[in-house]
Amino acid sequence: MQLTRPDLARILDRSAAERPTAELGWLDAPPARARVLRERVVLGPDATVDDVADALFGWRIHRGAGLVIVPSGPADVGVTVVQAVRAGSLWFAAPCRVIDVVRTPDETGFTYATLPHHPETGVESFRVLRDGDRLVFEIHAVTRHDFWGSRILPRVAHRVQDRVTRGYLDAAGLSPGTRPGSP
């Protein structure tokens, strides 16, 4: 937490050798006192798996959610990303590592886990899924408060997480090729 925008490139360099603080298994078996969040949005009739996946793997959905990000590359297993979000007059940096990638005709996406110095400990999964004849974008997160500020003010931490999640959902719905009438 700081008053000025964090140096994300420096944090990315520092985070390169760090190990994730949570495991993929948290999505199926959340630890005690974890917050489980699962949200989804039905994408427009012109949405394609490829368009939304390109926006997701290229980090455009994260940028579209209002995050400032510096990734070490397109989303793939082992890629590190540092995100920054502003809450009031404070900035929070959140380093993560991609730990799982899925690419099938009916499900495409990735999961990342938090790294040390992230305000939370947890995992978050982003998926583009076929649901019958519809295409949906789904977020599934399991987190625990790690930062002293989020432990003292959990409602504020939840509001920030909810705001960013809504941003992801909105950005997925506005990805190229997902707007009604787009080519």
Rank of each mutant, 00 (worst) to 15 (best):
H117D: 15
C96P: 02
T108D: 12
I99D: 10
D100R: 12
E120A: 11
H118F: 10
R127S: 11
A141N: 02
G109P: 13
C96A: 12
F110A: 05
P119K: 08
A113T: 09
A94N: 14
L135A: 00
D131F: 00
H117Q: 12
F126S: 04
T104F: 07
T111Q: 09
V123P: 01
I99F: 12
R134C: 06
L135W: 02
C96I: 11
T111V: 15
F126C: 01
T114Q: 01
I139E: 08
D131P: 00
V102M: 03
H140N: 09
E107R: 13
T143M: 10
A141I: 05
P105C: 14
G122K: 07
T143C: 12
P105M: 14
S125K: 07
A141H: 00
H117W: 10
E107K: 11
D133G: 01
L135E: 07
T121S: 14
T104G: 13
T143L: 11
P105A: 15
L129Q: 13
T143Y: 09
T143Q: 06
P105L: 13
G109W: 03
F137E: 02
V128E: 06
C96S: 14
E120R: 05
S125I: 06
P116D: 10
D106R: 13
V123G: 01
A113N: 07
G122V: 11
E124S: 12
P119G: 10
V102E: 12
D133K: 01
V101F: 06
L115M: 01
F110W: 06
T111C: 11
A94C: 15
P105K: 14
V123M: 03
E138R: 10
I139D: 03
V123N: 00
D100C: 10
A94T: 06
A141S: 12
T121Y: 03
V102I: 15
L129Y: 06
I139Y: 04
D100E: 15
T108C: 14
V101A: 07
G122S: 07
H117E: 14
R97M: 07
I99M: 08
D100G: 03
F126W: 03
E124Y: 05
